[in-house]
């Protein structure tokens, strides 16, 4: 289990995160929501050790992530950033093979190859497995990268705005894949989302950030409330229930 304890981060006198603490429930999807500049991406970066915090620590199973070795942590936590332009000629299968790097150091064993094939099938990539990743469409490439993370086989998966630059169909497809990862493979998924309705529809839990602080957290029902969200985003909004799912209307 991941625990964030009293994290703060300051960029040249601007406080981006200010004493943030919470726990992330295992085997569930947790979304970070909030207005621009609230510190969501920075927080995700700190949890994934891409960014060093100025105060506080991130614990994985009661042990600070700074005490883990690089490849030990890479077997537990994986991250996908929003821009994944690659300056190499790689096939989809080769890209997914990189997911096994923490386990085998780049020399694929028979077991690694099985894992890669399973990831290819799981994400329905068999048809394009030999294609160059730079020839794929944005949605397909995103799926290939998810494939890499599935092959990496970590119990925690972090994603920074995975829906950015995806159209509606691919956004839905992406969220369904993440849902399956949690429900079928028992993964813990943490992601930054811009669209409050996507977050409400597919998450189990939500963390709302505002000005570097946790403004609200809890289950979707606890966070997606008119008073809570209106104060987080500073806009009047209305919440309707359609087929038991909450929809937020803010225009």
């Amino acid at each position: 289990m991941i625990e964030v304890r009293d994290i703060s981060k300051i960029y040249s006198s601007v406080t981006v995160l200010d004493g943030v603490s919470f726990r992330i429930a295992d085997r569930s999807i947790t979304s970070f929501v909030g207005p621009n500049g609230a510190g969501k991406t920075t927080l995700l970066g700190i949890i994934s050790r891409l960014i060093k915090p100025d105060g506080g620590e991130v614990l994985l199973d009661e042990k600070s992530i700074s005490e883990y070795g690089g490849s030990d942590l890479a077997k537990r936590i994986s991250i996908l950033k929003q821009s994944n332009f690659v300056n190499m000629r790689l096939t989809v299968r080769e890209l997914i093979g990189f997911g096994r790097f923490p386990h085998s150091g780049g020399r694929l064993t028979g077991e690694d190859k099985d894992m890669v094939e399973r990831a290819v099938e799981y994400l329905d990539l068999a048809e394009m497995a030999e294609k160059d990743i730079n020839e794929l469409s944005g949605g397909q490439r995103q799926r290939a990268f998810i494939g890499m993370i599935v092959a990496q086989d970590t119990d925690h998966i972090l994603l920074d705005e995975p829906l950015n630059s995806l159209d509606m169909r691919h956004s839905v497809e992406m969220m369904r894949i993440l849902r399956r990862l949690t429900d079928e493979l028992k993964k813990t998924v943490v992601l930054v989302l811009h669209d409050i309705n996507f977050a409400a529809r597919y998450s189990d839990r939500m963390v709302a950030l505002k000005n570097g602080k946790v403004a609200a957290l809890g289950s979707v029902d606890e966070v997606v409330r008119e008073d809570v969200l209106a104060s987080v985003f500073d806009v009047p909004l209305e919440i309707r229930e359609i087929d038991g799912k909450k929809i937020c209307i803010y225009y």
Binding site: L73, S78, I79, N84
Partner: peptide, 8 residues
């Protein structure tokens, strides 16, 4: 980002 995620 991706190489840190993969433990490099």
């Amino acid at each position: 980002e991706q190489s840190v995620s993969l433990g490099v």
